[in-house]
Each structure stands twice: as structure tokens, then as C-alpha cells.
């Protein structure tokens, strides 16, 4: 080995070993356990069986949970990209002195944690919450409308959680795009929307992809928001996994659920990367 190779190894070893020990090794162990058999009362019995995976793919309940998780995540991703793009474009192009303050308005929600933001939505959505108080005060409704513990509440909650990630990712890509072609298009008479559609957006495709993938992964993963805003009858994958491991102590099936969740998430994000790469040659 050359001296260069040696020093690279020395610099990389601590971080790499840490990730191997706390990510790769536990995943390997969990995968092995997902092939074991669970016997109630006896905990876990050594075996090599696909029974836990077969149980998942033949039980309509778990398939429905995966289905809900998937369509909620896809919808959230689309909403976040559409809702986040204008704000990101504005942040990337603005020259105001208040830019730091606007960045703070994006970063602060990102940093205060999902549970705190879910608390904010609980204030808005409750039977006696802000929305019902306003609608009632305006005389638009006589009985409070149900928003808490509905799918709508969960979707609004996850969109709000993911939007700052999407805005920041898009903004950093948009800032790297030279505004000169846009200005050229505008000065040659293109309408603003046509300019955005034909000049800005095609250049921003890698950013849209990165932001979309991040948003999708986070939504597939959502824990606090569905637990707090969805209530006991609304189920997504992450709370179901946690319940299986912590309450039921069913490691084999909990492990299988984990790997299904991970495989679905990674396959879809890889597919998105491939499709976009082929279409736009990025």
C-alpha cells in the first residue's frame, strides 16, 4: 500500500467503522432474525423461514397499511414539490436584507421537531380548535367539523414537516443556476410562466429529484405525525413497526416489516433516479 492509501485509510477508518458497527451490523442481525420463527410465550425460535414475509404479503391488514403509507407519501411529495418551488425560487433570487430572516423561517420549523409541530396542528384542528372557532364564528358551520384524527390531518401535518427540507434542497440547486438565460428569455419576450417552464425548470430537474426523493423517504418514515394527528385507527408503517417490536416483542415479524419498508422505499427512490436520469441525462 502506498503512503497515500495508508493515510486515506487512517482518516476514513473511524467514521467507516462507526457506520459499519451501528448501521450495517445491526441490519444484518435484524435480517437474520426476520427469518426466525416467533412462538408466543417462547419469544424467538431459530429457523430459516420466509414465513414472516409471507404473512406480510398475504395479510390484507398489513398490505393496507403499506398501501396507505405509499399513497400518503406520494401525495405528500407532490404537494411539497408544488408548494415548495415558489418559496424556494423566491429565496434563491431575492436580494432583500431579510433573506436571513426568511431562511430562519424555513430552518426554525425544520429544527423544532415533529412532535412540537404536530402540537401546533392539534391547536388548529381540534373540536374546539382555531379552524372550528373561526368557521363557527363566521356562521359557516353549526357543529364542529372533524379534522383531528383524519387522513387529511396527517397529510397536512407531514407536508408541513417535509416542506422545509424540500424548500432548502430546491433553493440550493436554484441558487447554482445562472439567472442570465432566464433574463435573456424574458427580455426576448417570453412570458414569465413560459420562461419558468422552458428555462428554469429543466435546469432544476436534479434539485427537484433530490428534494422529491428526500421528501418521499421522510414521509414513508413518518412516526410522530401519524401517531398524534391520525389517532389509533389510522396506521402507517413506522408506528406499526415500533409497535411490533416494543409492545408485541415480535422481533422476527418486526424485522420483516422493517425490511419490507426499507426495500419498498429504496426501490422506488432508485427507480425515480433511473427514470429521471434516462429522461434528462443528468
Amino acid at each position: 500500500m502506498t503512503r497515500r492509501g495508508l493515510s486515506a485509510a487512517a482518516l476514513l477508518a473511524p467514521a467507516t467503522l462507526l457506520v459499519v458497527a451501528t448501521l450495517v451490523a445491526p441490519l444484518v442481525l435484524l435480517f437474520r432474525y426476520s427469518l426466525n420463527r416467533f412462538v408466543p410465550g417462547e419469544f424467538m425460535v431459530e429457523a430459516v423461514t420466509a414465513a414472516n414475509y409471507i404473512k406480510f404479503f398475504t395479510d390484507p391488514y398489513y398490505l393496507a397499511v403499506l398501501g396507505t403509507t405509499l399513497w400518503v407519501s406520494l401525495l405528500v411529495t407532490v404537494i411539497c414539490l408544488v408548494a415548495g418551488f415558489p418559496a424556494a425560487l423566491f429565496l434563491a433570487r431575492t436580494r432583500t436584507r431579510f433573506k436571513s430572516l426568511l431562511i430562519l423561517a424555513v430552518v426554525l420549523p425544520l429544527f423544532v421537531g415533529n412532535a412540537v409541530r404536530a402540537a401546533g396542528w392539534m391547536v388548529a384542528f381540534g373540536q374546539k380548535g382555531v379552524i372550528n372557532a373561526i368557521l363557527g364564528g363566521l356562521g359557516l358551520i353549526t357543529t364542529p367539523i372533524e379534522i383531528m384524527y383524519t387522513t387529511t390531518a396527517v397529510i397536512i401535518g407531514i407536508v408541513a414537516v417535509n416542506l422545509p427540507f424540500v424548500v432548502l434542497t430546491l433553493q440550493s440547486v436554484l441558487e447554482g443556476i445562472d439567472p442570465a438565460p432566464e433574463e435573456a428569455a424574458l427580455s426576448l419576450g417570453a412570458r414569465p410562466f413560459a420562461t419558468w417552464w422552458l428555462v428554469t425548470l429543466p435546469q432544476a430537474v436534479p434539485g427537484v429529484l433530490a428534494a422529491g426523493v428526500l421528501c418521499f423517504i421522510l414521509a414513508m418514515n413518518a412516526y410522530a405525525t401519524p401517531v398524534l394527528l391520525g389517532g389509533p385507527s389510522f396506521q402507517m408503517m413506522a408506528p406499526v413497526v415500533a409497535n411490533e417490536i416494543l409492545q408485541q416483542s415480535n422481533w422476527p415479524f418486526g424485522g420483516a416489516l422493517s425490511f419490507v419498508l426499507m426495500a419498498v422505499t429504496l426501490t422506488l427512490t432508485a427507480a425515480a433516479n433511473l427514470i429521471v436520469a434516462r429522461r434528462y441525462r443528468v
Binding site: 408548494a83 415548495g84 415558489p86 418559496a87 425560487l89 423566491f90 426568511l102 423561517a105 424555513v106 426554525l108 420549523p109 423544532v112 412540537v116 409541530r117 404536530a118 402540537a119 401546533g120 396542528w121 391547536v123 388548529a124 382555531v130 407536508v159 408541513a160 416542506l163 422545509p164 424548500v167
Partner: peptide, 15 residues
């Protein structure tokens, strides 16, 4: 643009 920012900050203001 305004809607995006309000939506992100709203839950914090409510708390």
C-alpha cells in the same frame, strides 16, 4: 410564496 412560508411557520405560532 407567502402561502409556503405561512404554512411552515403557522404551527409554531399556534404553539
Amino acid at each position: 410564496v407567502a402561502g409556503g412560508f405561512v404554512f411552515m411557520v403557522l404551527p409554531i405560532l399556534l404553539v
